[in-house]
């Protein structure tokens, strides 16, 4: 459907049905009223834990900090071995090796390391820099690449540039790493743009489409995630290929996470409810999930010192 030329991209995106902002917000708000209790809550909490891309993306990150979250990723609750491990660790490029080595040592061989790449978070760098950034992360053991799209190019109408860049990074990842494409929806602003960018990314070879870097607000709002889930559902109907979705930024509580799972369940469908097709980029969320898990198990809330920091 797209041969890479500006015209083919433009005419493909023109075939997409528009999004009505008011209607999408209303649908997302309605799904937020779902009441998830008892057995379904407990199932959802474990599913959410296994979907977390446990993330640290700070200038102040150190080897010590990265090792700490690796341990947490493998055994989120040291007192309870039935808690599943998280979906992945997400770090900056220079922490990839440390994370990979430490995960392997800590018994987390099957937990992938995701590296944010392509001059994250702004993406304002030359293609060569983006290439080196990506190659370097893969060489050091990143199995997932979280790239950012060129929002400036998208907003100025240079869709060809956005498309070819994703395609290029995908060619670097091919066979070695999964590609997550960050749309930075807080900068795209309209839901029509979110839908267009989602299809552009999928057509260019994204394995996952991701809402945000976490550095721009608003991030993973419910209407944005809804529109992206509709996009992967429609893409599956068109091509038979299932693309994953990763909301990131602002999902901090168990309630927030469960609302995300409800969105998945009633939009893309139950087939998307697994860590291969849905991830949640978060740092603080894990501890809230663990506290709610203890509450369900023990019947009362434990103090904050009963869940480990990091």
């Amino acid at each position: 459907m797209i041969d890479g030329t500006a015209n083919s991209i433009k005419s493909f995106l023109k075939t997409l049905s528009p999004v009505d902002q008011v209607g999408a917000e209303a649908r997302a708000a309605m799904l937020a009223t779902r009441s998830i209790k008892t057995s379904s809550k407990s199932w959802a909490i474990d599913m959410a834990i296994s979907m977390i891309d446990l993330t640290t993306l700070e200038g102040a990150d150190t080897a010590g900090k990265v090792k700490a979250i690796c341990n947490k990723a493998v055994r989120p609750d040291p007192s309870d071995p039935t808690v599943p491990h998280v979906g992945a660790i997400c770090v900056y490029n220079d922490m990839v090796k440390i994370a990979r080595t430490h995960l392997d040592a800590a018994g987390g061989r099957d937990i992938p390391v995701a590296a944010v790449s392509t001059a994250f978070p702004s993406g304002r760098a030359s293609l060569e820099v983006k290439r080196v950034d990506t190659e370097d992360a893969i060489a050091h053991g990143a199995a997932e690449i979280d790239m950012v799209i060129d929002r400036g190019a998208f907003l100025s109408g240079d869709l060809e540039k956005v498309y070819s860049e994703i395609q290029y990074i995908k060619s670097l990842c091919e066979g070695r790493a999964h590609l997550k494409v960050i749309l930075e929806t807080g900068e795209l602003v309209t839901l029509d743009n979110v839908r267009k960018a989602s299809f552009l990314a999928m057509a260019a070879g994204a394995d996952f489409i991701k809402t945000s870097t976490g550095k721009v607000a608003p991030a993973a709002t419910a209407p944005v995630v809804l529109v992206m889930l509709e996009a992967v559902r429609d893409w599956y109907a068109m091509t038979g290929v299932k693309i994953g979705v990763k909301p990131a930024g602002g999902i901090r509580t168990t309630k927030d996470a469960i609302k995300q799972l409800v969105l998945v369940n009633e939009t893309a469908g139950p087939e998307w409810l697994n860590p291969q097709l849905f991830r949640i980029g978060a740092s603080a969320l894990l501890n809230d999930l663990l506290m709610q898990r203890m509450k369900l198990r023990d019947g009362h809330y434990a103090g904050p010192n009963y869940v480990t920091l990091d």
Partner: peptide
Amino acid sequence: MTFEYAPAL
């Protein structure tokens, strides 16, 4: 297993 919503009466 799928996401069954438990009764929320």
